[in-house]
Structures are given as C-alpha cells and as structure tokens.
Simulated scan of single mutants.
Amino acid sequence: MKKWLITLVPVMLAGCSTYNQFVERMHTDTLQYKCDDKPLTVNLNNERQQVSFVYDDKVLHLDQGLSASGARYTDGIYVFWSKGDSATVYHRDRVVLDNCQLQNPQR
C-alpha cells in the first residue's frame, strides 16, 4: 500500500501543475500589434491584471497601474499603454514603440 501511495502522490502533483498551467493559458489573451513596421506580441492576463511581452531580448512582465484612460501596465521602468486598438511602449518615460495598431481586433 505504501509503495502504491508513494507512486501515486507525484503523479497527482504533476497533474495539478498541468491543470494550473492549462487554467493560466485559458485566462491569457494573445494580442498582435504592428508598431511602426515592427510586430509586438502581448500576452494579456486579465485575472492577474498583467501583460507580458518581449522587448530588447527581455521578457517583460508588467502589472496593471493607474490610468486616466485606457489600460496602463508598468514595472517601474517599462510602460505598456493601450487605448482602443492602439498602444505605446515607454522605457523610462521615453517612447520606444509607437503607433502600435492591434491586428485583427475582436469586436
């Protein structure tokens, strides 16, 4: 009985991890932007109120912040700001990706 239980516990834990990853992907939307002829793929997780994307060969995870209009996400260094179908990315208050237009927006 103990051998069976020792074998079953790791299998059950692996199943929980796989389930959690599946649920995480269910709550994440992938948004495709075209920024001044450069593509930008943004993963938006509404449940965590977070976006993630790759910029300058770094994976950035930005948390939702305060915004008078639109949606603003920041880590204190980078800012992703979207409003409607457009977005802008800032690095230390300097625009690094501008004129980002959402491709194939869902209405």
Rank of each mutant, 00 (worst) to 15 (best):
G65A: 11
S67T: 15
Y19A: 08
P10H: 02
Q50C: 01
F22C: 06
M26S: 14
T18Q: 04
S67M: 14
V59A: 14
T41A: 14
F80L: 11
T28D: 07
L8K: 01
D85Y: 10
T28S: 15
R94Q: 15
R25A: 11
L40M: 09
D57M: 02
A87K: 05
L97C: 06
L40D: 08
V89R: 03
S82V: 07
D75F: 14
V89L: 02
N99G: 09
L40S: 11
F22W: 15
R48P: 00
V42N: 03
V23W: 00
G84V: 12
V79T: 11
N45V: 00
M26I: 14
R94S: 06
Q50T: 09
C100S: 03
R25F: 06
K83N: 13
C35E: 07
V59K: 13
Y19W: 06
C16P: 01
D56S: 12
V51M: 14
V89T: 02
V79I: 09
R72F: 12
L31F: 12
D75T: 13
T74A: 11
T41H: 10
K38G: 03
S52E: 13
V96D: 01
T88M: 06
D85S: 11
M12D: 00
S82D: 14
A87G: 09
K38C: 03
L66Q: 07
S82I: 08
